[in-house]
């Protein structure tokens, strides 16, 4: 899965779950879109769905410091790299 595809999937989650269209990549999500801890949990569920695999508790905790869309994409990129069966991974 390419960085561009990850970005596209993350943006889809933001539109579907948080009603945010084309979020800015480096804005602080809390300040710009009132993104909060509840949204973070919903985001992780969305990521699990498109990866097709469950995140470990440790992986979920690592997400708690994320502040921007770019950081979410970095996070997902790492997850994809550790999963052989993630979408787009051969």
């Amino acid at each position: 899965m390419t960085r561009q595809e990850i970005e596209s999937e993350v943006k889809k989650i933001f539109l579907r779950e948080f009603e945010v269209e084309n979020p800015e990549m480096d804005l602080d999500l809390r300040e710009a879109y009132a993104f909060d801890s509840i949204d973070a949990i919903e985001l992780l569920l969305g990521i699990e769905k498109f990866l097709g695999s469950e995140l470990t508790q440790e992986e979920k905790k690592q997400a708690m410091d994320i502040r921007t869309i770019n950081q979410i994409c970095d996070y997902v990129e790492k997850l994809v790299a550790t999963r052989k069966d993630a979408p787009g991974v051969n």
Partner: peptide, 14 residues
């Protein structure tokens, strides 16, 4: 299955 169980969202209790 577990997927169904996980469909209980973070906000359901709230």
């Amino acid at each position: 299955d577990k997927a169904a169980y996980q469909s209980i969202g973070a906000v359901d209790y709230l």
